[in-house]
Design a binder for these strands. Structure first.
Lengths: 174, 174
DNA sequence: CTTTTTGAATAATGTAACAATATTCAAATG
DNA sequence: CATTTGAATATTGTTACATTATTCAAAAAG
């Protein structure tokens, strides 16, 4: 055990890049002190990510320690792509039952998506919000319900008729 | 408009303390770059809370500046009551179509809820996950599909049959 | 006298810089 | 050949600092 030098320059020595806790670079960001704890929890351990299981599972009960069969999911980022352009509307009635939209369901609406033929959209008509499927050709646009008991209506952007956005997800409570 | 000095020392001059955006001091914290956006949004204001609109709306388009008719909503806290006991399962097939569960839907499952008569539950049978409605009397338990094309099955907790939890929400993508 | 303009004073803020720590590898040692 | 050691380099929490934002009273204008 001599106190001597242990070699000079060596190629490939030192801690390799990308070996940090996150697998990506970090950067300092100013956080109000009262929120530091929560931010750190969110950042260090995937706080908002919950396990997503597939159809077949190993024996026994699921456990948070499992390596989830299909990974983890954060509802907010999964359902909301453009937070600044997203809002919620509660559905009423059963005119869109065929699209899986039931009375009382919560609709996730994205205003940044283009409303094209076949999309389910939110439209305000005379201050009332409605959910319908948009159908359009080069000549005309319709709003069609997904329920044979209701009629289609002609659609045209006017003073009292506005297209609010495209429905991306339907949340149904049991 | 002379170019002269404008007084010397003055008591009470300068920006007062506590006039920052948060009303409290801040401190730099290292954040992985991919999460900086999310953290900033969370920290600056009600990040995960997006507007929830009612059925009738004032004229014009909605704006984030609006005082939302029905307030704001955070999907995570709205859909997940008990984070440590919650997980997701993707539904397969149409045996529960009557309960609003379609093929490919994402199910929010809470293990901490008691599975009582009438609840929609997740059960593993021989390593396969199934969604069914639980019916039980003092004598017996059944798992019933919500589709007349499928049969009910007898239910009993066994080695290869386990009740995983109660389905609280169904997320349907369009 | 009242209103408007100005810049000194001070806090807040984003980011660079730094010291301390963690990690890896090959040379030195046994 | 296995183990120990320390040079080399990345990571990390925090400090430092230059820049920006904000406020107020003196000075200027009306």
């Amino acid at each position: 055990m001599e106190m001597e030098k242990h070699g000079g320059k060596r190629m490939g020595a030192g801690r390799p890049k990308g070996t940090n806790h996150y697998g990506e670079p970090t950067q300092p960001v100013r956080i109000p002190i009262s929120k530091i704890d929560r931010v750190l929890r969110f950042v260090r351990e995937r706080e908002d990510e919950l396990p997503l299981y597939g159809h077949s599972v190993p024996a026994g009960f699921p456990s948070p320690a499992d390596d989830y069969a299909e990974g983890a999911l954060d509802l907010n980022s999964h359902l909301v792509r453009e937070p600044t352009a997203t809002f919620f509307v509660r559905a009423r009635g059963d005119s869109m039952i065929g699209a899986g939209i039931h009375d009382g369901d919560l609709l996730v609406v994205d205003r940044s998506l283009e409303a094209s033929d076949g999309k389910v959209v939110i439209v305000s008509i005379n201050g009332e919000l409605t959910v319908k499927r948009l159908r359009q050709t080069k000549q005309k646009s319709w709003l069609t319900p997904e329920n044979p008991d209701y009629p289609s209506i002609n659609f045209q952007e006017q003073d009292d008729t506005h297209l609010w956005g495209v429905v991306t997800n339907v949340i149904h409570s049991l």
